[in-house]
Amino acid sequence: MQSLASACLAGLARAITGVIPIWLGAKPSKNQRIYFANHASHGDFILLASCLDPEERARTRAVAGADYWRSNRIRRVMAEDLLRTVLVERNWVERSKDPLEIMLGALDEGQSLIFFPEGTRNMSEEPLLRFRSGLYNLAVARPGVELVPCWIENMSRVLPKGMFLPVPLLCRVIFGAPIAVEPGEDRNVFLHRAQQALLDLNPTTDGERR
């Protein structure tokens, strides 16, 4: 059921966006990975997952906000049963379980993660929001997992926030070289470096394709 749903979604994503992966710095591999990407649309992780080969896609789960995806029944069924996302509480005050523990639990089961370090969908004119510390905490806790930056192009135009019908436009996902936390590296320095690694993959300037 879930593998069928993921195959259907991947096929749909390809039919609408004609997406192709550009393996710029990383190659498809069997290494356990955290794919970290820019985030502006609900279609982002479906698009990214459709660029992975079926085996890797089957063990890759996206990290999503529990406050949003558990807020009603349809969303809950979609997120938990169909898309198998790893749901974490983003709210510091009310949360019952530490998000880091949940994500580490998924990693320890051998799963790869799709992770959006901005923490929310970017609605600003800036290409990227400030990274939250989650990426750093994951990287320090599980140094063996590769951190692959993935630039998702155009998906925010295909399916902007608040829309449910996609516009067919061509998309690409550009995979960069994996990065890692250096010994003793400061959290902010690392997050800034990760952000820059992702931005370097962005082929557009002032909203138009280069």
Binding site: G18, N154, R157, P160, V167, P168, L169, L170, G207, E208, R209
Partner: peptide, 12 residues
């Protein structure tokens, strides 16, 4: 049309 619109400036 999909290829064409991809290269144009569109807004939300």
């Amino acid at each position: 049309l999909r290829e064409y619109v991809t290269l144009t400036h569109t807004r939300r």
